[in-house]
Simulated assay, not measured.
Amino acid sequence: MLSVIRERIKNAPGGSVSYATFMEMALYHPKHGYYQKNKEKIGRNGDFYTSGTTSAVYGAVWADVFYSMFRELEIPFVICEIGAGDGSFAKSVLDEWQAKGYPALDYVVIESSPYHAERVGRKLVGHSWSCYSSLEEFQSVCPSFHGIVFGNELLDALPVHVVKQTSSGLKEVRVALNENGDLINVAVHADGQLRKWIEDYQRELEPGQTMEIPLAMTSWLGMLYEWIRRGFVVCADYGYTEEEWRRPEIREGSLRGYYRHQLIPNPLSHPGEMDLTSHVHWDCVRKVGGDYGCSTSCFQSQQEFLLENGILDHLVKNAGRDPFSPEHKKNRAIRSLIMDNSISRYFQILIQKKDGCS
């Protein structure tokens, strides 16, 4: 992967590429990109955990929420999950859906990684589902959508540009090579597109502040919201509001890597071998949705969301004394999702609703 990136930088105007270009190569290169490789990425033997792999209860709670959402708008029972990972979430939703005897459900998976698509297929044996390699491929057979779109830790993995407010003005931080061929940061004057994004969604940066600018996410969301005619967009992810971006502790930005469950502060380390992620700009997501007729019906921490939607009802009473029994494991998993130091404390749930009838 490193040789591919070096070649791209050498041939780039000015000898540097944006962080968005670097991330696109490091994560999504068809042969060497992190997400495209045939390797374990999620869970104990991977680089990170997700809520959906922590416990099947997470998907079970969502199954009931999804059913209520379908009933609210009286829309077709269709769920489109974008970026399904190893299929754990899809399986737990479909298992609970079947157990509750809800109406027949069309479950569509969008997964660009052949490795992950194969893993999803193994998880969903016995269930009815379909898979597409990209949202564009699905849109070619479904030009307008009625249903629910769900993405768990989807937006945080989209490529971002990086800018810094300096004493000499707004600079874009880009990726270049030093004399030894190592990847390094360089700064150039930020272009008008980056400045306009800040104008539209962030107002201004504090002196010395570094921030990720999600041009790719903003554009992609516009295409997504335009495609949806009636239904919901659900995002489970970690991010900040405009005010939270001003906190001193994130003055240096949020872009980092995860490698073997270790946080790697330098995103240029291990290109193609580790996950890269940055926090979501929630106000931008909400504003883009609003521009396309999507109102926000829920925005809260995942911890609060799970508690309000009945996760404690899944606790097993009288689980017996064996601490290794399935019942005890289930109860521990539930607690691990809602305790104050749990993953859910750092995640937010955003649900946007489009109830137009075009």
Rank of each mutant, 00 (worst) to 15 (best):
M23Q: 09
E244W: 09
S18H: 04
R44I: 14
H32A: 13
V141R: 07
G43R: 02
I184V: 15
V162A: 08
M1A: 15
I79S: 12
S130N: 02
H261M: 05
Y240P: 01
Y58K: 09
I5Q: 05
N152W: 02
E243M: 06
I213A: 12
N178F: 07
E206I: 06
Q303H: 06
K353V: 09
W282I: 00
V280D: 07
S168D: 15
G320Q: 04
S16M: 08
N11S: 06
Y258D: 05
E179Q: 07
F347W: 04
L155W: 01
S219A: 12
V280S: 05
L306I: 07
I5N: 02
Q98K: 07
S144T: 10
E204T: 04
R174L: 08
I334Y: 14
E244N: 15
E24H: 15
L105C: 14
L205T: 05
R321M: 03
G151Y: 03
F48D: 11
N152L: 00
G257N: 05
I198R: 07
V4W: 01
V173D: 08
V141T: 01
G320K: 03
C131A: 07
V162P: 11
G121S: 12
S278P: 00
T50D: 01
N318D: 05
I264N: 14
V288N: 01
G293H: 11
L154G: 01
I311M: 07
H116G: 05
E24C: 03
G85A: 05
E242H: 08
A60C: 04
